[in-house]
Design a binder for these strands. Structure first.
Length: 292
DNA sequence: GCTTTATCCCGATTTACCTCA
DNA sequence: AATGAGGTAAATCGGGATAAA
C-alpha cells in the first residue's frame, strides 16, 4: 500500500537529514517513522514519531509559550478544578463581537466540521464550550485560550505521538474538556510549529555550512593561484626569472646563461631561449584572492 | 477499474488576544 | 490610561491523498 505517510516519508528521504552532523537536510524533526493501520472502528491510525533532531533549538518553556496567556479567557466550563477556576475567574475584557462575516463565510465548512467531529454527545453540554460561543449565534468568534494544564497535557500527548487516532483524540478531548476538533486543530498547529522551528534550525545550519564552504573555497582559490604562479614562473625564460645581474652572455655560443646558476639552469636557459615570451609577466591569475 | 464519500492532513491565511513601547 | 504595532496561537479555508463503499 502506498499511503500518504509513505509518500511523505519518500519526500523526506529525498531531503538528507543531518543526524550524524555530516549531512544536512530540511526534514522536520530530522525524520520520522510512520505507522498506518486500520483500527477496529475502521479509521486509519497514523503514528508519526519524530526522531530526536540532531540539531535542535530549545523549545520555549510553557511560560514563554503562553506568556501572559496563562489567564484563561475561555468561557469553557470545566470539571477540572483549576481549569474551572481559571475559566470562571477570567473573562476577556476585549472580547468583541466583530466577526459576523467570518462566521457566515465559514458556516458551511464549520458546519461540516462540527457535524463530522462533534460525536462526543455523551458529554454534558455544560462541560463543553458554551454553544453560544460555539455556533456563533452571538456573532462572536471567541478565541479559546488554553490553560496551562490543558497545554501541558497536550504537549505531553504530542511528545508521545504527534498525530492522533480518533480514539486518542476523543480521549484527549474528554480529558481536556475540549471538542475533538479543537484537539485536532491544536495538533495540526503544533505540527506546523514544530516544522517551522526545524526549518529555522536547518536554515541556520545551512547558513553556517555555506559560510564554512565559502571560506574553504577562498582558501583553495588562493592556493590554486599560488600554484599557477609557480607553474608560470617555471615556464618563463630564465632572463625573466632572474635579475639581469645574474645573467651573462656566453661568449662562445652567444646564448644567455645564468652566472650564478648551475649547469641545469644553463641548460634550461638554452632550452627556453626560443620559447615565446608570455604576454604578461603574471598571467591571467593575478586576481587577489579576495576578489574570488 | 471508476466514482463517490468521508476522513485526515497540510499550507496558507485570518482572527482574537496579548505584550510592550 | 489609552493606543497602535507586533507577536502568538486558535481557528478557518482550500485542496490533496487515501480508504472504503
Amino acid at each position: 500500500m502506498r499511503n500518504k505517510e509513505e509518500k511523505t516519508l519518500f519526500k523526506m528521504m529525498n531531503m538528507v537529514h543531518h543526524e550524524d552532523g555530516l549531512t544536512l537536510g530540511l526534514g522536520y524533526g530530522g525524520g520520522r517513522t510512520t505507522e498506518s493501520k486500520l483500527s477496529s472502528d475502521g479509521h486509519r491510525h497514523h503514528q508519526f514519531k519524530l526522531y530526536e533532531p540532531s540539531l535542535t533549538l530549545g523549545w520555549p518553556s510553557e511560560d514563554s509559550i503562553h506568556g501572559g496567556y496563562d489567564e484563561a479567557t475561555t468561557t469553557t466550563t470545566t470539571t477540572v478544578t483549576t481549569m474551572a477556576a481559571a475559566a470562571a475567574s477570567h473573562s476577556s475584557p476585549n472580547s468583541t463581537v466583530s466577526s459576523f462575516s467570518n462566521v457566515n463565510l465559514s458556516a458551511v465548512k464549520r458546519e461540516r466540521d462540527i457535524v463530522s467531529e462533534e460525536v462526543d454527545l455523551e458529554r454534558p453540554v455544560s462541560s463543553r464550550i458554551s454553544d453560544e460561543d460555539e455556533d456563533g449565534s452571538t456573532g462572536a468568534r471567541k478565541k479559546l485560550r488554553l490553560t496551562k494544564e490543558q497545554s501541558a497535557l497536550l504537549e505531553d500527548s504530542f511528545k508521545e505521538h504527534s498525530t492522533l487516532n480518533p480514539k486518542q483524540k476523543q480521549d484527549l478531548a474528554h480529558r481536556l474538556n475540549l471538542r475533538p476538533r479543537q484537539v485536532e486543530v491544536w495538533f495540526q498547529n503544533r505540527r506546523a510549529r514544530t516544522k517551522l522551528k526545524q526549518t529555522e534550525v536547518d536554515c541556520e545550519f545551512l547558513k553556517r555550512c555555506c559560510e564554512s564552504l565559502t571560506d574553504e573555497n577562498r582558501r583553495l582559490q588562493k592556493e590554486l593561484q599560488e600554484l599557477k604562479m609557480i607553474k608560470y614562473a617555471s615556464s618563463m625564460p630564465l632572463y625573466m626569472q632572474f635579475p639581469a645581474a645574474t645573467l651573462s652572455m656566453c661568449p662562445s655560443c652567444e646564448r644567455i646563461a645564468s652566472a650564478g646558476g648551475g649547469e641545469d639552469k644553463a641548460k634550461a636557459a638554452t632550452f627556453l631561449i626560443g620559447a615565446p615570451k608570455p604576454t604578461h609577466l603574471y598571467g591571467p591569475f593575478t586576481n587577489s584572492p579576495a576578489a574570488c
